[in-house]
């Protein structure tokens, strides 16, 4: 009985991050990396993996230290913990995935100031148990991944007329491949796609109007 109840709570925290409070589409958090790295599917996958790693590790560390961290200096402590994991991540990417490291550029380092991560640390991990924080991190991380993949799929298909994952082309669209709408992989396309997606979700009633 107790186990079943606990399981439901973990599932609730997990699903909450993916749909009900999707960090990108519903809370409009972490927009800077979302717009910048979604010009191709590869970048979106690399960035999501990085964010999930940092979110998970920092949530685990912060929630297991939540009783030791003094209330007044909690934000600097959170930032140092997050920055440490971002440094680890950027060294790993530099060593094992150099092309991805190059194309993500400064946005990999900017995971430090991603509002999603600091937000989860402050609102959740600093108050709840380690296991709940893990499911919360996975939920928010997968919600972020989902948003990034939807946006980058649209932008890459419209902008290049084809879809490729790490060098292998999956398919080509008939007319678009000869005449791609390049604007979608340029900066204006990012604003346009997110604006239209937000409007679509409101129109469908997934998101309530302000």
């Amino acid at each position: 009985m107790q186990n079943e109840k606990n399981g439901n709570r973990f599932l609730k925290e997990f699903v909450k991050g993916i749909i009900i409070s999707n960090p990108v589409f519903i809370l409009a958090l972490g927009l800077c990396p979302t717009l910048a790295v979604t010009s191709s599917l590869d970048n979106a996958i690399g960035m999501s993996a990085g964010v999930i790693f940092v979110l998970l590790c920092s949530n685990i560390i912060i929630s297991s230290m939540r009783k030791i961290i003094p209330e007044t200096v909690r934000i600097p402590v959170f930032i140092v913990v997050i920055a440490t994991f971002v440094t680890i991540l950027s060294l790993v990417f530099q060593a094992y995935f150099p092309p991805l490291y190059e194309s993500l550029g400064i946005y990999l380092a900017l995971i430090v100031v991603n509002c999603i991560i600091l937000g989860r640390a402050e609102a959740f991990a600093s108050k709840k148990s380690v296991l709940l924080s893990i499911s919360d991190a996975l939920g928010a991380g997968i919600g972020f991944t989902l948003a990034l993949i939807i946006i980058s799929l649209l932008r890459e298909m419209l902008g290049t007329g084809s879809l490729s994952v790490f060098g292998s082309i999956l398919f080509k669209l008939p007319v678009l491949f000869e005449n791609p709408m390049v604007i979608f992989i340029l900066p204006p396309g990012a604003f346009l796609v997110i604006g239209l997606l937000l409007a679509l979700f409101r129109w469908l009633g997934v998101v309530k109007n302000e």
């Binding site: 409009a28 900066p187 204006p188 604003f191 346009l192 604006g195 129109w203 109007n209």
Partner: peptide, 23 residues
């Protein structure tokens, strides 16, 4: 403007047009 476009969505589309101009 249409109800579902009000607020953030229309701001994003405005930004898209501005970005186009800055290109």
């Amino acid at each position: 403007c249409p109800k579902s476009m009000r607020g953030l969505p229309i701001a994003f589309i405005t930004a898209a047009l501005l970005a186009l101009a800055f290109l």
